[in-house]
C-alpha cells in the first residue's frame, strides 16, 4: 500500500437527478482529496454543485430520483453505497457536518444539550451524565457564554451566531477527523462570521480536524483555507494552493469572480469586471466548456469539454495555453492590480 493514504479521496463523483425533462446533472466528474489537518476551501455560486458534492460525501442525498456514482473513500473505505448501519458508524463520528442555516439546522423541540448528547451516545458508550459533561465542555470550547446553562436551552432561545456555535460543538462532539462545513457563515453577520471563522481556524490546532469549507465568498476562503477548489456548473474548474490561486488564478471564471468583488483597499474601480450572463441551468447545460457562453476567451477548442488535468499543484480546466494567461487576464475590462 501507498504510505500516505489521503484522509478523503473523491474520484469521479457524479450526482444527477431524474426529472420530467430527463436526467439533470448536478455534479459531474468531481475528483479531489483532502489530507489530514488540511483546510480545503470550495468556492462556487448557486448551482455550481458544491453543496450536492458535500451531501453526496455524507450520504445525505436520499431523493429516490437521485443517481450518485463514482467513489468516495474515507481512510480507504468506500462510503458510497454503504449500508446505513456502516455509514452511521462513520457519520457523526469520524466525518461531521455543519450546515448553512443555523436557524433551521437544529431540531426545535430538543435542547442543545440533548441533541449533542444524542450524538455522543450514538457513537460512544458513555453515561448520560458523562455525555452531558462533554457537551458542556464542547460548548465552552466553541465559545458559548455560560455553557452550563446554555446546554439546557432550546435552539430558538439562542442567537444565530450562538446556534452556529452549538451546531459546530455538536459536529465536534466525537472528535471527527474531517469536518464538512457548508456555507457555515453565510447566514451570519460579519462580526459573527469573524468569530466563527476564527473558531474553525482554531479547530485544526486543538482538535486536529481537517475541514472542507464550502462558500461563495472568496474572502472567507482567503481567511482560512490552505487549498482552494473552484466549481462551476457541477465541475471543478480550478484547484490549487491558496497562494497560487489567489495570486495567479488560471481559469477565466476565477478571474471573473475576483473581478466581481469590490475591493476593500486602494482605489475603487469605476466599474466592476462582472461576468456577463448568468450560470447555465442544469437542465440546459451548454456543449463543451460550460463557462464558454460567458467567457471572453472562448475559441474553437472550447466546444469540447476541458479536463482538469492530473498534474498536482495548481490545475485548471481550460484550453487556453498555460503560458501568458496572466497577460490575458490583464486585458479584461477594469484591469487587474499588477
Amino acid at each position: 500500500m501507498a504510505t500516505e493514504m489521503p484522509l478523503l479521496a473523491v474520484e469521479n463523483l457524479c450526482v444527477s437527478f431524474r426529472t420530467d425533462g430527463g436526467v439533470v446533472p448536478a455534479v459531474s466528474g468531481v475528483s479531489f482529496s483532502v489530507e489530514r489537518r488540511e483546510i480545503l476551501g470550495v468556492v462556487g455560486e448557486s448551482g455550481s454543485g458544491k453543496s450536492q458534492t458535500l451531501l453526496a460525501i455524507m450520504g445525505l442525498i436520499n431523493s429516490p430520483n437521485a443517481i450518485v456514482t463514482g467513489s468516495v473513500r474515507f481512510l480507504g473505505q468506500e462510503m458510497l453505497g454503504l449500508k446505513r448501519r456502516a455509514l452511521d458508524a462513520i457519520r457523526g463520528r469520524q466525518v461531521a457536518m455543519v450546515f448553512q442555516d443555523p436557524m433551521t439546522a437544529l431540531t426545535p423541540v430538543h435542547t442543545i444539550g440533548d441533541q449533542i448528547i444524542e450524538q455522543i451516545r450514538a457513537h460512544e458508550s458513555l453515561s448520560r451524565g458523562a455525555a452531558r459533561r462533554r457537551a458542556v465542555e464542547l460548548l465552552d470550547a466553541v465559545g458559548l457564554p455560560s455553557p452550563e446553562s446554555a446546554v439546557d436551552r432550546y435552539p430558538h432561545q439562542l442567537s444565530g451566531g450562538m446556534r452556529q456555535r452549538a451546531v459546530i460543538a455538536m459536529a465536534l462532539s466525537c472528535n471527527p477527523a474531517l469536518l464538512i462545513a457548508d456555507e457555515p457563515t453565510t447566514a451570519l453577520d460579519v462580526t459573527v462570521q469573524a468569530q466563527i471563522l476564527e473558531l474553525i481556524g482554531r479547530l485544526r490546532d486543538s482538535f486536529g480536524s481537517a475541514v472542507i469549507l464550502v462558500t461563495h465568498d472568496l474572502g472567507v476562503v482567503a481567511e482560512v483555507a490552505d487549498r482552494v477548489m473552484v466549481m462551476y456548473a457541477g465541475r471543478v474548474v480550478e484547484e490549487g494552493g491558496k497562494g497560487q490561486l489567489f495570486r495567479e488564478p488560471l481559469h477565466p471564471y476565477s478571474w471573473g469572480l475576483f473581478g466581481s468583488i469590490p475591493p476593500m483597499h486602494g482605489p475603487r474601480p469605476a466599474r466592476l469586471t462582472a461576468i456577463p450572463g448568468s450560470p447555465p441551468k442544469l437542465s440546459q447545460m451548454p456543449q463543451g466548456c460550460a463557462f464558454g457562453p460567458r467567457c471572453g476567451f472562448r475559441h474553437e477548442a472550447c466546444a469540447a469539454q476541458p479536463s482538469l488535468g492530473s498534474a498536482g499543484g495548481h490545475r485548471s480546466a481550460c484550453f487556453l495555453p498555460r503560458e501568458g494567461r496572466h497577460e490575458l487576464r490583464r486585458t479584461l475590462a477594469g484591469g487587474v492590480p499588477a
Binding site: 455524507m58 445525505l60 448501519r85 452511521d88 431540531t107 450514538a122
Partner: peptide
Amino acid sequence: QEDFIRTARAKGIGERRVLINH
C-alpha cells in the same frame, strides 16, 4: 424534508431515531 432532519441524519444516529425522536 426539514434541515434539522438532515442534521440528525448527519449525526449518524440511525433512521429510526431520526424518525421518532426528530
